[in-house]
Every structure is written in C-alpha cells, then in structure tokens.
C-alpha cells in the first residue's frame, strides 16, 4: 500500500509548527498505524533527518500514551480503538492521511505530535483517590459491593487517560475524563466518605487548568477509545450539585 502523509512538525513549544508532506510506499496492510510511522521514521533517520516524535508505549491500547489526530479524529477513524490498535487495512491504498497532535489549549505541544497532558495528573492529585494509607484497612470482603454497581464502576474505571475526549470536544472540555473517576468512586462504598470534597476539588482543578465547559454534544463519548459513557458526566453534575448545595 502507498500513502501520502501530511504530518504536523514542530521543533519545540516555542517554535511555530507546520504540516509537512511525506509519501510512503510498500506498506503491508497488517501493519499497525504506529508501525507505519516507525517505517517512516527509519527512512527519515537513514536520510539523516530527525524522526517524527510521537508518544506511544504499550502498543496494546491500555497505557493511554499514544494520541494523534488522524484525519481530524482523535485515534483515527475507528470507534473504540486507540491509535496503536489501528491497522493500515483500515485505510485505502493511495489515501492522503492527515496526522496532527491533539489540539487543546490545556494540552500544549511539546514537539511534533507530542503534547503535555500533565493537567490530567493535577486533576487527579486534587481528589482522584480514596484517602487510605497503606496498612490501615479492613478485610476486603468486609466491604460487599452490589455487583451492578461494581460493574458500572469498572466501566468508568476503564478510562486510560489519553485525552481523546478533550481533543474531540469543540470546547476542549475534560468532563468525560474527570467524571469517569468521580463516577467510579461515587458508585463504590469506599468512595462515599470523601464524595463531596472529591467532586468539588476535581471540578475546581479542571476549571483552573483551562478546560472548557461541557455542552453535551457527545463527541467525547463517540471518540473515546474505551467507550466511556457520558452518563458519567450526568453523574458528576449530580454529585457536584449535591456537594455544592449541602
């Protein structure tokens, strides 16, 4: 297979970037998208040019490190798929593919396709936890959890923190990401003690990081590689109102 690639190149945060054209040939349809990028980078290195920097690590769709806007969509054209799980058979031979970094003010570009998502970490540090110290806990089976709630909590906990929700949202809202953690802990008895402080602190931090507001377009849910439901945002809002009013 053969492709025309239009890739965002940017030397560092303070230098403006631009789209650069590359063409690539002899791509096997069973290659993953990132393996295609590897092939391109090997060609660049052999020519003495710096390879395209992009974040990636586990390459099995779970670490959340890979990002990329591919043809205008975070993680590319397929639903429920991270960039690292995308295969070239999902593209047409001869196709032109646009590859850009996730775009959001709160995710500044570091280089090429690499962005800074540390805002997510700071939101978690504000309240995305249960305050229990190591060793000070009771036997695990002393906390029975309704199976339905446990399953819903697990659905929310499956978030990989990649930031596709932010990149997909016209407002660059982080509501889906934040609500996934709030929901997980709100659904479990372990999270009840600090539920109010948690939601207030995390939402406050989200606002401070400059993420936009949620206007319920649902783009985040549609693009989320782990299919996190926007019903979590409804739960977050409910938790937030309860915490604000009581």
């Amino acid at each position: 297979m053969k492709f025309n690639l239009k890739i965002w190149r940017q030397k560092n945060a303070s230098t403006p970037g631009k789209i650069v054209d590359y063409s690539i040939d002899n791509i096997n349809e069973h290659m993953s998208f990132l393996e295609m990028m590897d092939v391109l980078n090997e060609q660049l290195i052999h020519k003495g040019e710096p390879p395209v920097a992009y974040d990636h690590d586990c390459r099995e769709g779970i670490c959340g490190m890979c990002s990329m806007h591919i043809n205008g969509r975070p993680h590319g054209p397929l639903a429920a798929t991270t960039t690292c799980q995308l295969y070239m058979r999902n593209f047409k031979d001869g196709e032109t593919i646009y590859i850009e970094p996730f775009r959001a003010n709160s995710f500044p570009v570091i280089r090429d396709l690499v962005v800074d998502r540390s805002a997510f970490d700071r939101i978690m540090q504000a309240g995305g936890f249960v305050s229990v110290n190591t060793g000070s806990v009771q036997d695990a089976n002393n906390i029975p959890v309704n199976k339905q709630h446990a399953d819903l909590a697990m659905d929310a906990a499956a978030c990989i923190g990649c930031g596709a929700c932010v990149a997909a949202c016209k407002n660059s809202s982080a509501s889906l990401f934040v609500s996934a953690k709030i929901s997980q802990l709100a659904l479990l008895p372990q999270g009840q003690v600090e539920a109010k402080e948690r939601v207030l602190a995390m939402v406050n931090q989200m606002d401070e990081e400059g993420f936009g507001s949620c206007t319920n377009t649902g783009a985040c849910e549609a693009e989320c590689p782990k299919e996190i439901s926007i019903s979590n945002i409804a739960r977050m809002n409910r938790e937030y109102y309860i915490a604000s009013l009581t």
């Binding site: 936890f129 249960v130 229990v132 190591t134 060793g135 806990v137 009771q138 036997d139 695990a140 089976n141 906390i143 029975p144 959890v145 309704n146 199976k147 446990a150 909590a153 697990m154 906990a157 997980q184 802990l185 479990l188 372990q190 999270g191």
Partner: peptide
C-alpha cells in the same frame, strides 16, 4: 492477603459475585 485489602480500600473495582463479595 493485605494487598487485596489495600486495593479494595482504594476503590479498585475487582470482579464480584452477586452477593457482593470478591
């Protein structure tokens, strides 16, 4: 055994049976 206790207390959503136990 203490590891499981610790993780459950943190809110790790382990698989559960219908009775609510692990």
């Amino acid at each position: 055994t203490a590891i499981i206790d610790q993780c459950v207390a943190q809110g790790v959503p382990f698989a559960r049976e219908y009775g609510g136990l692990l």
